[in-house]
Nucleic acid binder design. Structure first.
Length: 668
DNA sequence: TAGAGATTAGTTTTT
DNA sequence: CTAATCTCTA
């Protein structure tokens, strides 16, 4: 895109002296505007180190960095590109917590724990073995943290027994984190807010470094993020908030459109610019998107238009079940690509929930179509990588008991449940961490001399690596760690050949990544251990280079665009999701659909299933109400009704399965 | 203590 | 129907 900025875009870029809200419709070139504005600020004499651009995802941050880099290079300020701080909210929060660790009562090596690490902690505190209850409690605690509600006030806000249990666990949860010298994701926003709001000196320091703040996807900020933003921006209020209320899809995570609504009141000089020209989609796709979103109450009226021709009709396909749906979509993609001599990466399949990818992965494999699943498990989340990360965290932070418990069991070293239970007891009695209890000989087990000496060896190894971590390159330390614990032998011994190869490969990728990061960003092992938790979604699967069909959730697809989009599983209960129907938050589901529709550049296909198997049983489905809300004249129905004999057979098979299940239940 | 088999519960979205 | 836990034995 080298043509000039349109008048609205130019206006958004030009005004750098006032607080600004840019209402950027889908596909209206907002990344371009932000990058151009960064370049403009630099050209206008703003110190690049005092420009802060905040995104929600690592991917968005990287994309923005690349765009800004390109522009800065063109104006001969390549040096400025690396000085500008472009980060996610959480990465920025981490930077603040790191810099201010002492004032926040944290040691420099504190750990960042992801929700997975904390699930067991919450389960223990909530005194339940029931996973779904534990996760509910964890969920509630996270919601309170995002609303900046301290433990003492949570109980008053709890509305049911589950939430009351969570409120009781909340204080213990906070204590556990501080005992571990650890923070969770929510703390990365919450702690900076608390510090900046109570400590004028710290506030001044950070405001000094935030001469201009740009926020991407502003509509998805939650109350804590808004307060962090306000604290950084200060009275001066030099910022550019870019957002689109029609694309707010993170209400379930505490995001609130209040932040958008109140901006004119909080900053009376606010300049509002609307970007209404869409550079992405055909007018037919846009007409349907507009018709759909017209069903929502609107904060700001926008009229999206495009000059990209009206394009093909939107296809709607009714499939028998999810397998047939996947097969139809895969065949369609294959045929279309052949006919148009396109690339696989021109196609995307978008769905509501991660589990829906299964059928499509199977169909893609069956038809030898290369595909890439986004949002799914990146190598950071694989068990073997999490094992290594546990070692890193423990090396960086002796108090990280969850990391201790994970690392001590990999590879098996003759230390089992019984020994660890005794160790926990000793540590609790002495008020120390598990590692410290071993080191300080607070714990001894005459009955299990072998287990005990293994524990000591384990802790000694970790301490040795910790001593060296500040000076030596991270890559070398990891290699040594792997050798010391005999990791390769362990993998070979515990898995079959194929599996072992895959694991060793991903471990090699991981150590290679660490070594690279260590060199290019001059990160030592302590720094790396802290940032890893935030990077889980990024980097691992980076589809950019690969020519593959993209399978993605609607949430993960936001900000992306594809020539050809297949929106699948459009059924009542899925999109809109059942829970949203019950909670009465259909408009957010509609925005999710809107996001999906507006990802498409040239063609859009919609599909739904007449039946779907759930927990082994076949259930009937209704097409999503959202299909009926699109521009009906632009839809072309391609689904054939289910042949009667097949319908009957399906029904019989379903009844048979139900009977078998009931019989099995009766037997018990 | 550790691995292999049985049993059981479950389906939203993510930094 | 899967993917996790949980239980049992070597």
């Amino acid at each position: 895109m080298s043509f000039p900025l349109n008048p609205a875009q130019a206006e958004a870029v030009r005004r750098t002296d006032a607080p600004m809200l840019v209402l950027a419709g889908a596909g209206s070139g907002k990344t371009r505007v932000i990058a151009a504005k960064i370049a403009r600020l630099v050209a206008g004499g703003t110190d690049p180190a005092k420009i802060v651009a905040i995104t929600f995802t690592n991917k968005a941050a990287r994309e923005m960095r690349e765009r800004a880099q390109g522009l800065l290079r063109a104006q001969g300020r390549e040096d400025a590109a690396s000085a500008v701080r472009i980060a996610t909210f959480h990465a920025l929060g981490l930077a603040i917590v790191r810099a201010e660790a002492k004032r926040l009562g944290l040691r420099p090596g504190f750990s960042v724990l992801d929700p997975q690490d904390l699930e067991t902690v919450v389960a223990e505190l909530a005194a339940t073995a029931d996973r779904s209850r534990a996760r509910k409690a964890q969920w509630a605690i996270s919601a309170w943290k995002n609303a900046l509600v301290p433990p003492a006030q949570a109980l008053a806000l709890a509305r049911d027994d589950d939430e009351r249990a969570a409120a009781k666990a909340y204080a213990g949860y906070a204590d556990a984190l501080s005992a571990y010298q650890a923070v969770d994701f929510d703390d990365l926003i919450r702690l900076p807010v608390e510090l900046l709001e109570r400590d004028p000196a710290a506030r001044g320091r950070w405001q000094e470094r935030c001469e201009h703040v740009l926020v991407d996807e502003y509509q998805d900020t939650n109350p804590a993020q808004y307060r962090l933003f306000r604290a950084l921006v200060g009275e001066r209020g030099r910022f550019t908030a870019v957002g689109d209320d029609d694309q707010a899809i993170y209400g379930w995570r505490g995001a609130t459109l209040d932040n958008l609504a109140r901006l004119p009141d909080d900053y009376p000089g606010l300049v509002v610019v609307k970007l209404e020209q869409n550079y992405r989609s055909t007018t037919r796709i846009l007409a349907s998107a507009n018709a759909l979103i017209a069903n929502n109450a609107k904060l700001h009226d926008k009229r999206l238009w495009s000059d990209r021709g009206h394009g093909d009709a939107i296809r709607v396909v009714a499939a028998r079940d999810e397998e047939q749906e996947a097969e139809i979509v895969a065949s369609a993609i294959s045929a279309h690509r052949f006919e148009h001599r396109g690339r696989w990466s021109d196609y995307a399949v978008l769905y509501r929930g991660n589990h829906q990818s299964r059928a499509f992965e199977a169909a893609m494999r069956a038809q030898s179509i290369p595909y890439e699943v986004s949002g799914g498990q990146s190598w950071f989340e694989r068990a073997e990588i999490k094992d290594l990360i546990a070692y890193l965290r423990l090396i960086a932070n002796e108090s990280d008991d969850p990391a201790f418990l994970r690392a001590v069991g990999v590879p098996r070293r003759g230390v089992g449940q019984t020994t660890l239970a005794k160790l926990s007891e000793a540590a609790a009695a002495g008020g120390t961490s598990l590692a410290a209890a071993v080191r300080d000989r607070a714990f001894s087990s005459a009955a299990q001399p072998r287990a005990h000496s293994e524990l000591v060896a384990f802790v000694t190894l970790v301490e040795d690596l910790r001593r060296r971590a500040a000076k030596e390159p991270a890559g070398r330390l990891i290699d040594e760690l792997l050798r010391e614990i005999g990791y390769e032998d362990h993998v070979v011994a515990t898995c079959d050949k194929r599996e072992a190869e895959a694991k060793l490969q991903s471990v090699a990728d991981f150590t290679g990544w660490l070594a690279r990061k260590g060199e290019t960003d001059r990160r030592n092992l302590f720094d790396l251990a802290q940032m890893i938790a935030l990077v889980t979604m990024l980097e691992g699967r980076d589809g950019e280079g690969a020519d593959a069909v993209r399978l993605s959730t609607l949430h993960a697809a936001k900000g992306l665009e594809f020539p050809h989009v297949h929106l699948v599983g459009l059924e009542e209960g899925i999109l809109p999701h059942r829970e949203s129907i019950e909670a009465g938050t259909i408009d957010e589901e509609r925005r999710l659909m809107y996001v999906g529709v507006t990802r498409a550049e040239r063609s859009l296909s919609l599909s739904f299933c007449r039946t779907r198997s759930r927990a082994g049983l076949r259930v009937d489905c209704q097409p999503s109400r959202f299909i009926g809300e699109l521009a009906q004249d632009d839809l072309r129905w391609a689904g054939q009704p289910l042949p009667p004999d097949e319908a009957a057979r399906e029904k019989a098979a379903g009844a048979e399965r139900l009977k078998a299940l009931k019989a099995a239940l009766a037997r018990r």
